[in-house]
Design a protein around this nucleic acid. Structure first.
Lengths: 193, 193
DNA sequence: ACAAAGTAAGTGAACACTAACATACATTTT
DNA sequence: AAAATGTATGTTAGTGTTCACTTACTTTGT
């Protein structure tokens, strides 16, 4: 599934609308306005509104997977790897805040099964990378083995997600990277031997 | 702001619809159907759809505040108090899953300022109780003082929220209380001296 | 008799989406 | 070199459906 340049522009505009004003703000009318063309032109690039969202989520999942894979390769040491993974995430969302919606869309939306599946896929990708790093860290003795890797991963992910939520709710008014790094360092400190 | 019995029935039905099928499923038509009366009858009890949601959030915030206050009074010891607070939360949402929406609504909705404010109020109430318990625990030496109370509260809240999200996404297919207790115990263990 | 709580039948606005047609530009045919 | 054709990408002007909400009237219980 390759995404054409014009499609990417539309996807980014759609993400902007959702991130700025909520999901209800993503209408074909407003999306067309933001693209400076008519509603009908949208349908030259996508078959439906749903397809726009599904394509966005697919694009985002692939992007995150690639990025986390390359970060993992660059940082063999588990504690440092987790730190670098989240740093990469903060950096990405700072530069592409329009994709923040994908983090929070879960749980309330249920607009369609395809959209739910797209959101789920992003969660799964992230958990896979994090869990792998934590298991490595437990084997090497860097992380505590007092609790299952699942549990540690859950605590770290929960910390990350709440941080992103607070950033979004504050109108992205603080330095997500700086504050996020501090939080992840604190959480890592708690689970480090 | 007192809520009449019939209003409470409507609020609960509205919460059910959102929790079952997402926010888009909350329409006046479907809500009236669930109440076994017509759309017009809704407007005998509320002035608008927004008012239904705002009243629900207000009700929920008051409820949570009362409950956490009484739990806090019953458990003077900080570690045990935090444990009991979350146990009370798990119990409540197990019995009233229709209010799960209020946990996840944040961040994507932005349907109106009044609704956002209602959601924010719930978050604030919870944080106030948790932060107070953690500060007590730091003073008594039960919790680590290696990190600020804010940070510890953030990690616990994030863990809780992600747990509730997973419960909801799984279709509430596991015992939220049992698994939740285990998670909170693990998180508390990490921040305990 | 009166107020509370219901109904039937609608309102205009907003929604996602479509049909028919226009333009720009690259490629192919003559 | 000029004309014809094809394809991508737009426009205008709609479609039917669903939305939250309203008006006028009716029933029910005290």
């Amino acid at each position: 599934m390759d995404i054409k340049p014009r499609q990417l522009e539309i996807i980014e505009a759609a993400g902007q609308l959702v991130t700025e004003d909520g999901f209800a703000a993503l209408t074909t009318k407003r999306l067309a306005e933001r693209m400076h063309f008519t509603e009908a032109a949208l349908y030259r690039h996508f078959n439906s509104k749903e397809e726009i969202l599904v394509t966005m989520l697919h694009h985002l999942a692939s992007n995150i997977d690639e990025r986390l894979t390359s970060v993992a390769e660059a940082h063999p040491e588990p504690v440092e790897r987790v730190r670098a993974m989240f740093d990469s995430q903060f950096d990405y969302f700072q530069k592409n805040p329009q994709y923040l919606m994908a983090i929070f869309a879960t749980g309330v939306l249920e607009a369609s099964h395809a959209i739910d599946a797209g959101i789920e896929r992003i969660v799964v990708v992230k958990r896979r990378h994090l869990l792998s790093a934590i298991k490595d860290g437990q084997r090497s003795g860097a992380f505590t083995s007092d609790h299952p890797a699942d549990t540690l991963a859950h605590i770290i992910m929960g910390t990350f997600r709440l941080h992103m939520l607070q950033w979004r709710m504050s109108g992205r008014s603080f330095d997500v990277r700086k504050k996020g790094k501090a939080l992840i360092v604190a959480a890592l400190d708690l689970i480090t031997n």
